[in-house]
């Protein structure tokens, strides 16, 4: 792999109306090539109707060392899940 090639993250929208989902990453020399590589690598079996590519280095990720501080406080707040409501019988498919 040429060291000039950068890592890109690939997001695919499976169908119109759905959100783009992260599907993986790939190497490319520029954004246009990344889009073509994404098309060739991740949509060969009709997986998508739209592609986003983002330079991996542009993504700011949370620090795993801070996971406790970031995510632990939510653990004992089950009341944030809407599970305490009684659902009326008439409401289907919720």
């Amino acid at each position: 792999m040429n060291e000039d090639w950068m890592l890109y993250e690939v997001f695919i929208r499976a169908r119109s109306g759905l959100e783009h989902k992260h599907v993986g990453s790939l190497h490319a020399a520029d954004a246009r090539m990344a889009l073509e590589h994404a098309r060739d690598t991740y949509t060969r079996r009709q997986e998508g109707v739209s592609i986003w590519v983002v330079r991996s280095s542009e993504i700011l990720a949370s620090d795993p060392a801070e996971a406790d501080a970031l995510f632990e406080p939510a653990r004992d707040k089950v009341y944030r899940h809407p599970t305490f409501y009684a659902i009326p019988e008439e409401v289907k498919n919720l």
Binding site: N2, E36, H37
Partner: peptide, 12 residues
């Protein structure tokens, strides 16, 4: 191919 991704592209 010069890279895995190009290999796939040429194969396609």
């Amino acid at each position: 191919g010069p890279a895995l991704e190009e290999d796939l592209a040429l194969g396609n």
